[in-house]
Computed example of a mutant assay.
Amino acid sequence: MTTELQDLFAFLAVVQAKGFREGARASGTSASSLSEAVRRLETRLGVRLLNRTTRSVLPTEAGARLAERLVPALGEVEAALDVVNSFRDRPTGTLRLNVPATVARLVLPSIVTPFLKAYPEIRLDVIVEDSFVDMLAAGCDAGIRYDERLEQDMIALPIGPRFQRFATAASPDYLNARGRPEHPRDLLGHACLRGQFASGAIPTWEFERDGEIVRVDPTGPLLVRLGAAVDLAVEAAVGGLGVIHLFEDWLRPHLDSGALEPVLEPWWQTFTGPFLYYPGRRHLPAPLRAFVEFIRSR
């Protein structure tokens, strides 16, 4: 029975990670052991659970149905085993967080090191993903998102700065050559460096002043995937290629050094900072409980 349970965990790790190599990395085992576990499970059940190609590993219809039922069931098993953690002097185990790139860059650096020093027996597994995901189905214990992207029926705890701003900036050389916009709509006549979500959507630039909201959809010479390649756009702005619109904290070092000059600052929009969110169940895994208490203490 122990082997069967391990095989179920292995199968779910592969499905959630969408691959044997990625599943091995997430579960702390080897790809070959996961492959063997899935083969044993398929043989025992007499049905193929995964479609394997050289490019992808996807569940069959039977595999998808099984994974859907296993997520809550194996979650309860892990919760039951985690009860033992309350008898330890210090919590141990893995905490899996799903966060957007902005949080990984701007919020977590000041939190991760002191947390792991305070809890050296906890391993933190950070999955950076800007698209909206079902945090539990993805095999994560908690996520960090902004309020408009929070999942329902979750507990939300403020983490990081409570307010942030989007900043607009360009290099002094660019502005001296092209002029300084006085209104957001002036950006329609400028070279703007844009970002794109994984879905393909390109978010408009939003500005606000005295209750007036202005949204513009400018064009420019560079389009980058948000999160993965934002630094490329920042360096392009510093190099004089065009105007950038991004989290103020991301641009702050370049604003302070003078490499970038603020543009339309009275129009910069303020928004609520991120939240740590997690299921509102009675028993939290010990690593997550420790992280929640650590964040609350700060």
Rank of each mutant, 00 (worst) to 15 (best):
A156R: 05
R96N: 07
S56E: 10
V38A: 09
R145N: 13
R165L: 14
A156I: 00
F247H: 14
I122Y: 03
S297R: 15
T2Q: 15
I295P: 11
V234H: 04
L232Y: 02
T53E: 02
R178V: 06
G280P: 12
S171G: 00
P287G: 06
T219V: 07
V103C: 01
M154F: 15
L50C: 05
F163L: 10
D256R: 14
Q164H: 07
H190C: 12
R296Y: 00
G273E: 04
G63W: 09
A233D: 05
Y119T: 03
E61S: 14
A10F: 05
P172Y: 09
L116W: 06
R209T: 00
R178Q: 14
P203I: 02
I111C: 00
G258C: 08
I295G: 08
V230Q: 11
Q164W: 04
L193Y: 03
T113D: 12
A177H: 15
L8G: 06
G220S: 05
D186R: 07
A138I: 03
Q6W: 00
S257V: 03
P221E: 13
P203A: 10
A236N: 10
I295Q: 09
P91S: 04
T29I: 04
L70A: 08
V126D: 00
D256H: 09
L175I: 08
E68S: 15
H190S: 10
R149G: 01
T54C: 05
G227W: 09
R39F: 01
Q152D: 13
R165W: 12
D89R: 15
S30W: 05
T204F: 11
Y277S: 14
A137G: 02
L74N: 02
H245S: 11
G195T: 10
S110V: 08
P72S: 02
G258W: 12
A259H: 07
V133F: 12
R105C: 04
P266W: 07
V84K: 13
L66Y: 04
G240A: 06
A73R: 14
G211T: 06
F207K: 11
E235V: 03
L288M: 00
P161Y: 01
R252H: 03
